[in-house]
C-alpha cells in the first residue's frame, strides 16, 4: 500500500514530484520549440526596402534615354525625360515581364503583350491592369538616388 504523505499541505509527495517533472519536461520542450518556431518564420525587412539605391550617375543618362538598374532585387527603369529623372519599376503589372524604354515615342513598352505605359508609369494601352510603381528620385553630387515612396 502506498503511504499517504499528504500531511498538512494536502499535496502528496508523488503528485508534487510528478508535477515538477512534467513542468520541467514541458519547459524544456517549449524552450527549444520557441526559438525554432521563431527561426522558421522569416523576418520582414522593411528597413532594407526603404533604403535608397544609387541608380546611375546623372551624366550617364542623356536626355531622352533610359537605363535599367536593380532596386532591392527587382529590375527598375531610370529615364531622363523633359520633367527630369523619373524612375519606375520595370516589372510589367500584367504578367511580370521586364519592360523596355522606347526612346522614339518616349514610352515604356512591354515586349510580351505590348502593354504600353507613359514615362510616369501610367497605363496608355494594352493588357496591364495597374500602372508601374513609381519611385522617388533625388539627384545629389551627380548621383541619381532612388527610393520607394512613403
Amino acid at each position: 500500500m502506498e503511504q499517504d504523505t499528504r500531511k498538512s499541505t494536502g499535496v502528496r509527495r508523488r503528485t508534487f514530484l510528478d508535477t515538477l517533472l512534467r513542468g520541467w519536461v514541458l519547459a524544456g520542450v517549449a524552450g527549444m520549440a520557441y526559438p525554432v518556431a521563431k527561426y522558421l518564420t522569416p523576418p520582414h525587412a522593411p528597413e532594407a526596402a526603404e533604403k535608397e539605391v544609387e541608380a546611375a550617375a546623372a551624366d550617364q543618362v542623356k536626355p531622352g534615354e533610359a537605363v535599367k538598374f536593380e532596386f532591392h532585387g527587382t529590375p527598375a527603369l531610370l529615364m531622363n525625360v523633359k520633367t527630369g529623372f523619373v524612375a519606375v519599376s520595370a516589372v510589367c503589372t500584367h504578367l511580370g515581364c521586364i519592360v523596355d524604354w522606347d526612346a522614339g515615342k518616349s514610352q515604356v513598352v512591354c515586349p510580351c503583350h505590348n502593354a504600353i505605359f507613359d514615362y510616369n508609369g501610367n497605363i496608355v494601352s494594352g493588357p496591364a491592369p495597374l500602372p508601374l510603381e513609381r519611385f522617388e528620385v533625388d539627384v545629389r553630387d551627380n548621383k541619381v538616388m532612388v527610393r520607394r515612396k512613403g
Binding site: P35, V36, K38, Y39, T41, P42, P43, A45
Partner: peptide, 9 residues
C-alpha cells in the same frame, strides 16, 4: 543578423 534566433542555431 536578421533571422530571429539565427545566431543561436
Amino acid at each position: 543578423n536578421d533571422v530571429r534566433f539565427g545566431w543561436l542555431i
